[in-house]
Design a protein around this nucleic acid. Structure first.
Lengths: 116, 116
DNA sequence: AGCGGTGTGTAGTACATACTACACGCATGG
DNA sequence: CCATGCGTGTAGTATGTACTACACACCGCT
């Protein structure tokens, strides 16, 4: 699933319950031209900037990280964290690359619970 | 320390032991114009592309991830890993954001040693 | 019949990215 | 003294990013 198709699917879904989720109205709330959003949804244009994707995610009540990922982008705050200690986070991420979700989730929980 | 200054420092260091590390010769091996490398080192031009940074890192025997980080970029393979499971890795990285190096290293080791 | 709202086609813009090509003056060695 | 290599200044290019502006045809409503 690419960025455009996903956004279109989500928006059309929302629209079934709320007429305010037309291309035009979403575009207006997000602050872009309707024609542009239309083209992005159809993949005729590449995904928008991080800032625009964030506003779009908020309007559609979608997770910004997921939309950014579909656009092949990484949240600015995550990039900063990694760039501050690239070897450390590089090693960690490459180590966890093939790990199943539950193993990673377990680490997240254990770190959060302060077993460290 | 910005990207340019760092590269310049490393290259000048290497040069003390090996005359092959002039701007011109490094540029030639890396595959860019000497004037361009010169400008990048002095911060007159923004850092090069990921591919060029990788070739530069190899020539200078520096860690590519470190150079990429100084350029504010994230290695393509790491981006792919994160983009495949954005929520999971997002949660993990944000959880580890303020953690000291040794805590993260411990996780890396424990994952590698297969205590999971 | 006409008005508002719909999606979309076409064209164009401003800025960033990622460089190349050529030229200049300096210095060091044969 | 001049050839070689050095770093660097100036100018220019191609491609990508991130959009805007306007126009068109269609559909439902009153």
């Amino acid at each position: 699933m690419d960025f455009g198709s996903y956004v279109r699917a989500v928006r059309e879904g929302r629209r079934e319950a709320d007429v305010r989720f037309s291309v035009r109205q979403v575009a207006q709330r997000v602050g872009v031209e309707p024609a542009y959003l239309s083209k992005v949804e159809r993949g005729e244009q590449p995904p928008p900037s991080e800032a625009t994707i964030r506003r779009l995610a908020e309007d559609l009540e979608e997770d910004a990280d997921v939309l950014l990922a579909l656009a092949g982008k990484i949240s600015g705050d995550l990039r900063e964290v990694i760039c501050r200690r690239p070897q450390l986070f590089g090693a960690l991420i490459r180590e966890l690359k093939e790990m199943p979700d539950h193993a990673i989730l377990r680490i997240v929980r254990e770190v959060r619970d302060g077993s460290w």
